[in-house]
Protein backbone atom coordinates (compact mmCIF):
# COMPACT_ATOMS: atom_id res chain seq x y z
CA UNK A 1 0.00 0.00 0.00
CA UNK A 2 1.32 3.46 -0.78
CA UNK A 3 0.26 7.08 -0.48
CA UNK A 4 3.47 8.38 -2.07
CA UNK A 5 3.48 7.33 -5.70
CA UNK A 6 6.83 8.85 -6.65
CA UNK A 7 8.62 7.13 -3.77
CA UNK A 8 7.00 3.79 -4.56
CA UNK A 9 7.92 4.15 -8.25
CA UNK A 10 11.51 4.74 -7.19
CA UNK A 11 11.65 1.84 -4.73
CA UNK A 12 9.97 -0.39 -7.33
CA UNK A 13 8.34 -3.15 -5.23
CA UNK A 14 6.89 -6.28 -6.88
CA UNK A 15 3.27 -5.17 -6.39
CA UNK A 16 1.75 -1.96 -5.12
CA UNK A 17 -1.52 -0.13 -4.80
CA UNK A 18 -1.53 3.67 -4.69
CA UNK A 19 -4.05 5.54 -2.53
CA UNK A 20 -4.21 9.29 -3.19
CA UNK A 21 -4.58 10.28 0.48
CA UNK A 22 -2.46 12.54 2.71
CA UNK A 23 0.45 10.81 4.46
CA UNK A 24 -0.65 9.12 7.67
CA UNK A 25 -3.70 7.47 6.06
CA UNK A 26 -2.14 4.69 4.01
CA UNK A 27 -5.02 2.32 4.82
CA UNK A 28 -7.97 4.67 5.04
CA UNK A 29 -9.88 7.40 6.86
CA UNK A 30 -10.13 7.39 10.67
CA UNK A 31 -13.24 5.79 12.18
CA UNK A 32 -14.63 5.02 8.74
CA UNK A 33 -14.90 1.22 8.69
CA UNK A 34 -16.58 1.06 5.30
CA UNK A 35 -13.91 3.21 3.70
CA UNK A 36 -11.14 1.13 5.30
CA UNK A 37 -12.75 -2.13 4.18
CA UNK A 38 -13.35 -0.90 0.62
CA UNK A 39 -9.70 0.10 0.38
CA UNK A 40 -8.53 -3.21 1.85
CA UNK A 41 -10.71 -5.27 -0.51
CA UNK A 42 -9.26 -3.40 -3.49
CA UNK A 43 -5.76 -3.85 -2.06
CA UNK A 44 -6.12 -7.58 -1.46
CA UNK A 45 -7.58 -8.05 -4.93
CA UNK A 46 -4.31 -6.72 -6.35
CA UNK A 47 -2.48 -9.73 -4.92
CA UNK A 48 -4.46 -11.83 -7.38
CA UNK A 49 -4.76 -9.45 -10.35
CA UNK A 50 -1.24 -8.02 -10.69
CA UNK A 51 0.70 -10.32 -13.01
CA UNK A 52 3.64 -8.13 -14.00
CA UNK A 53 6.47 -7.18 -11.60
CA UNK A 54 6.57 -3.51 -10.62
CA UNK A 55 2.90 -2.83 -11.30
CA UNK A 56 1.26 -0.02 -9.32
CA UNK A 57 -2.55 -0.11 -9.26
CA UNK A 58 -4.20 3.29 -8.70
CA UNK A 59 -7.07 2.90 -6.24
CA UNK A 60 -10.20 4.88 -7.00
CA UNK A 61 -10.63 6.82 -3.79
CA UNK A 62 -10.48 10.56 -3.16
CA UNK A 63 -9.64 12.16 0.16
CA UNK A 64 -11.84 15.17 -0.57
CA UNK A 65 -13.83 16.25 -3.65
CA UNK A 66 -11.09 18.75 -4.45
CA UNK A 67 -7.36 18.30 -4.09
CA UNK A 68 -6.58 21.48 -2.18
CA UNK A 69 -4.92 19.51 0.65
CA UNK A 70 -2.06 18.82 -1.74
CA UNK A 71 -1.11 22.48 -1.93
CA UNK A 72 -0.14 22.49 1.74
CA UNK A 73 1.97 19.32 1.81
CA UNK A 74 5.55 20.18 2.82
CA UNK A 75 4.82 23.76 1.88
CA UNK A 76 4.15 25.70 5.08
CA UNK A 77 2.68 29.10 4.25
CA UNK A 78 5.41 31.72 4.46
CA UNK A 79 3.17 34.05 6.43
CA UNK A 80 0.51 32.88 8.89
CA UNK A 81 -2.87 34.53 8.72
CA UNK A 82 -4.53 35.23 12.07
CA UNK A 83 -6.24 32.10 13.34
CA UNK A 84 -4.56 29.86 10.85
CA UNK A 85 -1.58 27.60 11.02
CA UNK A 86 -2.18 26.30 14.52
CA UNK A 87 -4.66 23.59 13.63
CA UNK A 88 -2.42 21.20 11.78
CA UNK A 89 -2.43 18.64 14.55
CA UNK A 90 -0.92 18.30 18.00
CA UNK A 91 2.02 20.47 18.86
CA UNK A 92 4.90 18.09 18.87
CA UNK A 93 7.84 18.47 21.18
CA UNK A 94 10.61 20.34 19.49
CA UNK A 95 8.48 21.66 16.63
CA UNK A 96 9.49 25.18 15.78
CA UNK A 97 6.90 27.89 15.67
CA UNK A 98 8.41 29.84 12.83
CA UNK A 99 7.24 28.42 9.52
CA UNK A 100 9.92 30.38 7.68
CA UNK A 101 12.50 27.96 8.95
CA UNK A 102 12.75 24.21 9.40
CA UNK A 103 9.26 23.13 10.46
CA UNK A 104 10.20 19.53 10.99
CA UNK A 105 10.24 17.83 14.37
CA UNK A 106 13.45 17.58 16.39
CA UNK A 107 15.06 14.14 16.30
CA UNK A 108 15.31 12.92 19.86
CA UNK A 109 17.13 9.64 20.45
CA UNK A 110 15.02 8.72 23.48
CA UNK A 111 11.66 6.88 23.19
CA UNK A 112 8.87 9.27 22.17
CA UNK A 113 5.77 8.00 23.96
CA UNK A 114 2.24 8.92 23.01
CA UNK A 115 1.24 9.36 26.66
CA UNK A 116 2.89 9.66 30.07
CA UNK A 117 1.17 6.43 31.04
CA UNK A 118 2.88 4.61 28.14
CA UNK A 119 6.24 5.81 29.40
CA UNK A 120 5.63 4.61 32.95
CA UNK A 121 4.12 1.26 31.89
CA UNK A 122 6.88 0.37 29.40
CA UNK A 123 8.83 -2.78 30.20
CA UNK A 124 12.54 -1.89 30.02
CA UNK A 125 13.27 -5.54 29.16
CA UNK A 126 10.46 -5.63 26.60
CA UNK A 127 10.68 -9.11 25.00
CA UNK A 128 8.67 -8.05 21.95
CA UNK A 129 10.91 -5.07 21.17
CA UNK A 130 13.69 -6.16 18.84
CA UNK A 131 16.84 -4.05 18.72
CA UNK A 132 19.15 -5.04 15.90
CA UNK A 133 22.90 -4.75 16.26
CA UNK A 134 24.87 -2.66 13.79
CA UNK A 135 28.38 -4.05 13.68
CA UNK A 136 29.69 -1.37 11.41
Amino acid sequence: MSSARSITESANPPRAVYLDYPLGHTSGKPDDRNNQLDIMRATLAAFETIDSPGTIVDLLFEWTPDDSWKDRVMRPSPKKEPGEGQKAGPKQAGAKEDSHSDDRVARFDTPQYQTEDDASSADPNCPTCVFLTDNR
Binding site: G24, S27, Q36, Y113
Partner: peptide, 25 residues
Amino acid sequence: RATHFAYDLTDARRDPNVVFPIDTL
Protein backbone atom coordinates in the same frame (compact mmCIF):
# COMPACT_ATOMS: atom_id res chain seq x y z
CA ARG B 1 -0.09 3.71 20.12
CA ALA B 2 1.58 5.75 17.37
CA THR B 3 4.77 7.79 17.33
CA HIS B 4 6.60 9.27 14.33
CA PHE B 5 8.30 12.57 13.52
CA ALA B 6 7.30 12.92 9.91
CA TYR B 7 3.52 12.80 9.70
CA ASP B 8 0.56 14.27 11.55
CA LEU B 9 -0.29 11.65 14.18
CA THR B 10 -3.76 12.99 15.00
CA ASP B 11 -5.72 10.45 12.99
CA ALA B 12 -3.41 7.48 13.70
CA ARG B 13 -3.84 8.08 17.43
CA ARG B 14 -7.61 8.36 17.06
CA ASP B 15 -7.84 5.22 14.93
CA PRO B 16 -4.63 3.21 14.39
CA ASN B 17 -6.31 1.43 11.46
CA VAL B 18 -5.33 4.35 9.22
CA VAL B 19 -1.72 3.14 9.25
CA PHE B 20 -2.06 -0.32 10.84
CA PRO B 21 -5.20 -1.94 9.37
CA ILE B 22 -5.65 -4.54 12.07
CA ASP B 23 -9.44 -4.37 12.58
CA THR B 24 -9.81 -4.18 8.81
CA LEU B 25 -7.80 -7.35 8.24
